[in-house]
Design a protein around this nucleic acid. Structure first.
Lengths: 340, 340
DNA sequence: ACTGGCACTCGTTACAGTCGAGTGCCAGGA
DNA sequence: TCCTGGCACTCGACTGTAACGAGTGCCAGT
């Protein structure tokens, strides 16, 4: 485990060269491109140690070295600084997000921006309902026995659901239902609503009871149990960069994984602490994504976190750059949300 | 141009064999696998004619024949019958679409179903706003100078948009605005609303004028001008079937095209007549999709059409099967929508 | 502890040769 | 007139061989 400074420098150089050239890097090329102050032979000895420790490997006997997942991990944790964004990148972010008219628009612009900046696949989770509060509930009569329930959350999300009432309900009763529901639930966090919904039913006037019971069922189902998370995706075409070298020749498993909302949510939604998370190769829990890395973080207005966003790409990616961009975009989106 | 029946039979056989084997088909294999009643030499002569007419071509001098886009076109137009669905497929469709709770759910289920059935990329357009009518407009005060406008369409679509008012508007005025807007617009087709919105402003009481003016701008923008079409996509992983033979080795242009809503809308949204449309290879107007074919049709409750859906895949696809599936799914979705 | 030198590995490239699927053409027959 | 069997030809796919060279591991020397 004795990795002195020079060995770490060698590892850093290998990662940087491999990321930029996409070719196994040999000892001679290394000393030429970096000022290591030692000879290729010395570097070779260091490489042998690094390989023994599992940080790099040789694709073929007579080839150069390539970082392993473990090597990237060490690089990310100890050998890299987050790369500051260029002024051009900052400007691109601002320009891209100005003029968004609603939440859908914000999310779509964000995901495209992220894909374009990082040249990877970008994923953005809509603000989670579980972390939103109710701003308003609207009941729209569709027929005498059907209502459309529309919930507007403070994060800008709007969810709707059809309610089949047990019997006809006159317009005045709908007005009463609307008032009762809003009095009880407006301003509450969705995760806190179940007991309140229960109370709604119990406190409802007799003639509203049946309707309120049905309504409460739908409310609970829609707003709480059925975790209605939404996801936006962009930049899948970026997977084809780097020929077929990345992803061991087949995009199939990656594309399959990207179609599963559950998978995506696990990847970018779990950001408990407000820090940036990096998952490298097989650290990932999904077999399909063992050739991929994910950089993700949470975003939200102010210090609170209402959703996650991130990028996915080959393990051979520019971690410092991508981490910087993901963080920057998350911060800007947070500011944008705070304005509403 | 003299294509007698046997030459057409040869073309049909070539298409069918090539679609199933994915390999250029030679004269000998053809007479073995189909009962043509003639010798390979005769088939070769027919092939020479078909090639001269541009229906088939040889990838290499010493290889078998492959259909051209023109050949597929002839096959689709004159040589194939729509393949009836198997009972298992019918059951799959029904099972898949039962239990959908809202429009989002319907669209998502549909697109996944279509991708699964056809093993191609599936595209479903949400019911077009231009072809919907207003069921209800709701105004939710966010602050004294901000409203959330929520429009519920008869197709189940719900659109929202933030309205920045020129000045504070008291709650009673919001109620009046809501009433006026609904009286004028409820039940109207969105494409017919512009003059009505204009009238709204002119007829509004003086103290509501400024607010109504702003509101009308947003209404027009959101509901009419900004053609807010939405699209769902599934099955991109299917593009990787057939190795890299389809799409001449690169998925890149296809994936890029699939990210452009405009492109997708052109592909599946233009279904003026209620018939099924098939675009083969370079019949397509987008260069990126010259190696792909699209089968699409319109759907809607009853005879009206509110949106389009379809599949995209390699030109070498099972046209009769895919046409059948696209039609069947469209019909089921139409029935489902009619129930609301 | 570092370095130069050297033998060795092994993937890549180039080239030649074989194989075989498939074709076009032609003369003969129904 | 149209179909068929036969035959020479083309050319991509595959195989085997050889030369090349990037890169390594090891070791003796400083």
């Amino acid at each position: 485990m004795g990795l002195d400074d020079r060995k770490l420098a060698v590892l850093r150089a290998i990662v940087e060269d491999y990321v930029s050239t996409q070719e196994p890097v040999g000892s001679k090329a290394l000393v030429e491109r970096h000022q290591l102050g030692v000879s290729p032979a010395t570097v070779r000895n260091d490489m042998a140690v690094l390989e023994e420790e599992g940080y790099i490997r040789q694709p073929h006997t007579s080839a150069g070295r390539v970082p392993t997942d473990r090597g990237y991990r060490l690089f990310v944790d100890r050998l890299s600084r987050v790369k500051p964004l260029s002024p051009a990148e900052r400007r691109a972010i601002e320009r891209f997000l100005v003029g968004a008219v609603d939440l859908d628009d914000v999310v779509h612009r964000t995901v495209r921006l992220l894909a374009q900046l990082t040249r990877q696949v970008a994923v953005v989770q809509y603000p989670s309902l579980a972390r939103s509060s109710v701003r308003h509930l609207e009941l729209v009569p569709i027929s005498t026995t059907r209502l459309m329930l529309v919930m507007i959350a403070d994060t800008g999300r709007v969810e709707q659901r059809l309610v089949e009432l047990p019997g006809p309900v006159p317009a005045e009763d709908v007005t009463d239902l609307r008032r009762l529901v809003n009095e009880k639930l407006t301003g509450e966090r969705l995760s806190d609503t179940p007991p309140l919904v229960q109370a709604l039913v119990e406190e409802a006037p007799v003639q509203l009871r049946p309707a309120m019971t049905t309504l409460s069922t739908v409310l609970l189902e829609t707003l709480v149990e059925r975790h209605e998370e939404r996801i936006a995706l962009a930049g899948t075409a970026n997977l084809t960069r780097g020929g077929l070298l990345d992803f061991q020749g087949s995009l199939r498993p990656i594309l399959e994984a990207l179609e599963e909302e559950v998978v995506l949510l696990k990847l970018i939604g779990e950001t408990e602490p407000s820090t940036t998370r990096v998952l490298i190769g097989d650290e990932n829990e999904f077999d399909n994504l063992r050739a991929a890395s994910v950089v993700s973080t949470g975003y939200g207005p102010g210090a609170t976190i209402v959703g996650g966003l991130g990028v996915l790409g080959p393990t051979r990616m520019d971690y410092p750059g991508n981490i910087a961009m993901v963080r920057a975009v998350a911060r800007y989106v947070g500011e944008l949300l705070a304005q509403n």
